[in-house]
């Protein structure tokens, strides 16, 4: 579904992504793991169109994304729960979710998708009229993901959903991610928490200082010695 080939992205003169190639097939959960500053968020931002790659190609179901403006990328079916959640603090939960539906093609399924989000995240329904800025960290993460789901996307990009959350919430979030995937949404998951990420993913890529150094099935990566030492904390 989504294919990145040899993508190079720069921040000014800093070479952030040095020839990234990633493939995500329909229905998969693919994870991109790596340490801080490796380029994980940059990859997602490049896919989303917030940064334009200097070279390389990004193709979604046959449509090239690399020169497309971010709002058009969203219209093409790429939704993201961004790093830091980025929910709209002074808008209510409902309004945030409504905004999520801004780019969707078929407006008719709005109520259905709304119900689906609330069934996935019942806590959001409880707080439906609360302002986004007053939610807790975990609730904000749910809202960010729910908002992305409201776009009824082809592919869902998740940027470090576990960041700053208590372990029990992390479990909840990841269970929900699996549920979303089971309902048919393709997911590209970027995570620092490699253990959780690899336990739910089908395949994984390891990125280090802007380069993909490994690409394999999640299970293989999990049992890989180097990965275990560097990212799983297993000696």
């Amino acid at each position: 579904m989504l294919e990145l080939k040899d993508v190079h992205t720069y921040y000014g003169n800093i070479h952030a992504l040095k020839g990234i190639s990633i493939t995500v097939n329909d229905g998969e959960i693919v994870t991109l793991i790596g340490s801080n500053g490796a380029g994980k968020s940059t990859t997602l931002r490049t896919i989303q169109g917030l940064i334009r790659p200097r070279s390389g190609s990004i193709v979604l179901d046959g449509i090239a994304l690399d020169k497309v403006a971010p709002h058009k990328v969203a219209e093409l079916g790429v939704a993201q729960s961004p790093e830091g959640r980025m929910i709209f603090p002074r808008m209510t939960v409902l309004e945030n979710l409504e905004m999520g539906a801004y780019a969707r093609k078929e407006k008719s399924g709005f109520q259905q998708d709304l119900d689906r989000v609330f069934s996935l995240f019942p806590r959001l329904k409880e707080r439906i009229t609360q302002k986004g800025g007053t939610l807790s960290g975990g609730e904000q993460q749910m809202l960010a993901m729910g908002r992305a789901l409201m776009a009824h996307p082809k592919i869902l990009l998740l940027d470090e959903p576990s960041m700053g959350l208590a372990p029990i919430l992390v479990e909840l979030i990841f269970d929900t991610i699996v549920a979303i995937n089971k309902e048919g949404t393709t997911i590209l998951l970027v995570e620092q928490n490699a253990l959780m990420a690899l336990s739910i993913a089908n395949r994984g890529y390891v990125i280090q200082t802007g380069e993909i150094i490994m690409s394999d099935s999640a299970a293989s990566l999990k049992s890989n010695e180097m990965v275990q030492k560097a990212y799983l904390g297993i000696e």
Partner: peptide, 9 residues
């Protein structure tokens, strides 16, 4: 012009 550089990047 550093800002311009960033935009191009």
């Amino acid at each position: 012009h550093a800002a311009d550089e960033e935009k191009k990047g």
